[in-house]
Design a protein around this nucleic acid. Sequence first.
DNA 1: GTCCGTTAATTGTCCGACAATACTACCATT
DNA 2: AATGGTAGTATTGTCGGACAATTAACGGAC
Lengths: 247, 247
Amino acid sequence: MNIEFAPLRLAPGYRKVAAALTERILDRSLPAGEHLPPEIELARQLGVHRSTVREALRELETNGLLERRRGSKRMVVTRPANDAVAEGVCRALSLSDVTFQDVWEAMTMLEPPLAAAAAGRREPEALAALEHAAAQFRAHNADAKAVDTPVAVREVADFFRRLGDCARNPVLILAQEPLLQLLEPSLDAMIDKVPQARARIVTAERRLVEAVRARDTAAAHDWMAKHIRDFKRGYELAGMALSQPVG
Amino acid sequence: MNIEFAPLRLAPGYRKVAAALTERILDRSLPAGEHLPPEIELARQLGVHRSTVREALRELETNGLLERRRGSKRMVVTRPANDAVAEGVCRALSLSDVTFQDVWEAMTMLEPPLAAAAAGRREPEALAALEHAAAQFRAHNADAKAVDTPVAVREVADFFRRLGDCARNPVLILAQEPLLQLLEPSLDAMIDKVPQARARIVTAERRLVEAVRARDTAAAHDWMAKHIRDFKRGYELAGMALSQPVG
DNA sequence: GTCCGTTAATTGTCCGACAATACTACCATT
DNA sequence: AATGGTAGTATTGTCGGACAATTAACGGAC
């Protein structure tokens, strides 16, 4: 008689709660900066237990959509930070045994046109930041008073990031971030074994800054291509295997 | 007198648990496919409560490092799937109001050299998959008996994915995935408004297959560049604003 | 008005319990 | 013996509540 269908709860509750909150954030009905109600209140509104809400919030937090602090009402909607997103990409890539060759090849494809775009579109303040990054690396690596390696490597990556800012394309900025993160440990190992590496980087950065300042897209493209090729040469000079996994 | 130091618990427990498990996975001491002990056992080993373990597991699950099923001992270590990682990237990008122009520009940079690499490195079975993808789209979009739009759009994206497989570079494959996901809805809207779009895609895919089969890297590069330019032309013909946010 | 202690609100963690679910092992049938 | 069904059991999902740690907000002292 009374045909009663199954509850049909395919997805667990915490997942549905997370999906609901994520949707509200993605469609901007919960804009960035908004304060969410506390866990207990969310649980009451959604009709689930606080533990369930917490597990859902953990998912949003992991996705960078939420930021929270222990203590008081500071659960705030945020936009995922570039480096956090890139970290997820790096995890996936390093787990699939990506080699230096793979990362390098991606950079040969991405970076020269990115530099050209940066030269074509740079704004004064982004150019200033780029010049500052180049000046900092140059100052820290002049002659023999070189700063310690991890700092130098980070400054190299920062130069790329400032170049990305000049290009004013969020897709490119986010696309190159995982490459930089993956390259950093390898570059760290290489830069100490190749004495001329720092000087060559200084030169390449100077030429790139000049090209970007002059809005010379072709020169920016070519110098970046040289810069990237130099990385590979540095690896070969350091005697490191190109087919070696990064990370 | 008794100098008592603070407990010094900067990070919450669930985060430390998640970090510990993540590290074990990333350094391969927990290889993919491995079965983790049940929650209660993990809680006992780590000296925390099951709820804390659960919140940590939720983080790993969100990062794609863990797969679980309700019921029995099926908590298994996995490698994050490409589309799941790309989804996170897409979330970040669509929240930063990426425009079609931005995505398209990234594709103009990435796809032609990717096609060239595919032509240079394709293996028989990847080539066969590429030919199959092209044939499927051609069959489904011949004449007037066109299949419904979402399927067609997915097939276009799949052609790019098969091309990525030919290139045999995990970085490139993962880099283009968010672009494809972001482009899909826009392409979906465009393809119906531009009558000749399907035919042009068929042509471009045929030429690309020919180039990849012949290992003609230059032709692959150029036809892909044409293919990508066509997307933009299609948008303009459809009267869609290039500076319109995607997603 | 500024600084500081108190208070209240909120999160992090814990404890325990039970239902839902999926695997497993066993039994019956062919 | 192989197959199919069934009960049992382990594990996850959810719930209820409790308390300590921490932080924002409030109010009072100077």
